[in-house]
Simulated scan of single mutants.
Amino acid sequence: MPKYVRPTRADGVFNGLVSLSTRLGLPLAGSRVLAVRGRTSGEWRTTPVNPLRIGGERYLVAPRGTTHWVRNLRAAGSGRLQHGRRVEEFTAVELADADKPPILREYLRAWAWEVGRFFDGLDKDSPDERLLDVASDFPVFRITTVSE
């Protein structure tokens, strides 16, 4: 069964504040508001995310596991990232588990202060073998901006 960590009430309040500040153009440490079409409704669904840039590539990591935004992005294959008035459309490709360890390591290096609790004792110094063992619990997408 895919990993999924349900947000607590406190998480909902925190996510709401991060989303609001990001929409106002004051992103928390580079956060963005992700918008993806719902897989059944077709309506836009939003949530705050922490995009990660590594060597010219950008990634979205799902620290809570297979969430609704992950399922929606798998179905849609594209979405939007917003901060302030800037909206960026992108396409997404999900990475294979074997490709995730270096991405998960950098994600933990950048965002462990916020999402480390979802990684059950892992950190930026965890061996690749350990990161590979849990890779299936953390969906990762490479995102590419759609040129207009």
Score class of each variant (00 low, 15 high):
Leu131Pro: 03
Glu129Gly: 03
Asn50Met: 08
Ala76Tyr: 12
Ala35Thr: 10
Pro27Ile: 09
Glu57Ile: 05
Lys3Ser: 00
Arg9Trp: 10
Trp69Ser: 06
Arg130Gln: 13
Glu89Ala: 13
Val87Lys: 06
Ser147Cys: 03
Arg130Ser: 10
Asp128Phe: 02
Ala98Trp: 10
Thr8Asp: 08
Asp123Trp: 02
Pro102Trp: 06
Ser147Ile: 12
Asp11Leu: 04
Leu28Val: 15
Ser41Asn: 14
Gly55Ser: 15
Glu94Asp: 11
Lys3Asn: 01
Glu106Lys: 11
Glu88His: 03
Glu88Asn: 04
Thr22Met: 05
His83Pro: 02
Arg71Lys: 15
Ser41Thr: 15
Ser78Asn: 13
Arg109Ala: 06
Gly56Asp: 14
Asp128Tyr: 13
Trp113Glu: 09
Val33Arg: 01
Met1Cys: 05
Gly42Lys: 15
Gly79Tyr: 05
Ala62Ser: 12
Thr22Asn: 02
Glu129His: 10
Val13Phe: 11
Arg86Asn: 08
Gly55Arg: 15
Leu132Cys: 01
Val61Met: 05
Glu89Pro: 06
Phe141Gln: 01
Thr67Glu: 00
Val140Tyr: 06
Ser147Lys: 14
Phe141Pro: 01
Ser126Pro: 04
Val61Gly: 08
Leu108Ala: 01
Ile143Tyr: 00
Leu26Arg: 08
Tyr59Arg: 10
Glu88Cys: 14
Leu24Gln: 06
Gly38Asn: 04
Glu129Leu: 07
Ala92Lys: 13
Asp133Leu: 05
Glu89Gly: 07
Ser31Pro: 00
Val140Gly: 04
Arg74Lys: 14
Thr145His: 10
Val5Asp: 08
Val18Ser: 08
Lys3Ile: 00
Arg142Glu: 13
Gly25Leu: 03
Ala29Pro: 06
Pro127His: 02
Lys3Phe: 00
Ala96Thr: 14
Gly77Ala: 08
Phe14Val: 09
Val134Ala: 05
Arg130Thr: 09
Trp44Ile: 01
Leu108Met: 14
Arg53Val: 11
Leu24Met: 13
Ser19His: 07
Ala135His: 09
Gly56Ile: 14
Glu106Asn: 09
Val5Glu: 08
Asp133Cys: 03
Phe138Trp: 02
Arg64Cys: 05
